[in-house]
């Protein structure tokens, strides 16, 4: 089946079987590397993507279901350079092995879009679906909170 959608701002057309999962289309056919397999059953969130702006799991999504929709991955968040949140991840040391990092960045961006000034509890609630085995999450919280307060600063200026 022919499926057409917008991936990170660019229109793509792929030919897929109906049983093909979005994670495999993205990784095997469209050069997306940030979307990761870790559990395959919707427990780890490492395959998170934004579809029409909403976070979902690409390992439980059929590629045919994104026909006509817009898919964003970590690679597509910024046209040039880094987003503020990506920068904050670097500054706060919010990753170690880096395997889960793109999923956290997507969820963090989503949160910051929904809530200007999230509380630490909001951050935990939004991020809880992505598992990280390295960092203990603390520096990830710091990176997200830091980005939000910065937004507030620029708003005041």
């Amino acid at each position: 089946m022919k499926v057409e959608f917008v991936l990170n701002g660019k229109k793509v057309v792929v030919d897929v079987e109906p049983n093909e999962l979005l994670i495999n289309t993205l990784r095997d056919k469209l050069g997306v590397k940030s979307v990761k397999y870790a559990c395959g059953i919707g427990e780890c969130g490492n395959c998170t993507v934004l579809i029409d702006g909403e976070p979902v799991l690409s390992c439980l999504t059929l590629t045919v279901d994104v026909n006509g929709r817009e898919v964003v991955t970590d690679e597509g968040l910024s046209r040039e350079g880094l987003t503020k949140l990506q920068k904050a991840f670097i500054e706060e040391g919010a990753f170690q092995c880096g395997y889960c990092t793109p999923a956290f960045i997507l969820m963090g961006e989503y949160l910051l879009r929904e809530k200007q000034n999230p509380s630490i509890e909001d951050v935990k609630e939004y991020l809880k679906g992505v598992l990280c085995r390295c960092t203990g999450y603390i520096n990830i919280f710091k990176a997200v909170l830091k980005t939000s307060s910065r937004r507030e600063d620029s708003g005041n200026a």
């Binding site: 940030s34 979307v35 991955t73 880094l82 991840f89 670097i90 040391g93 990092t101």
Partner: peptide, 20 residues
């Protein structure tokens, strides 16, 4: 606390692991 040199690739989702 010098930034890690792998930070950029990891933040942008470009870091390559074996399957990649």
């Amino acid at each position: 606390g010098v930034y890690r040199v792998d930070s950029l690739d990891k933040a942008l989702g470009k870091a390559l692991f074996t399957e990649d």
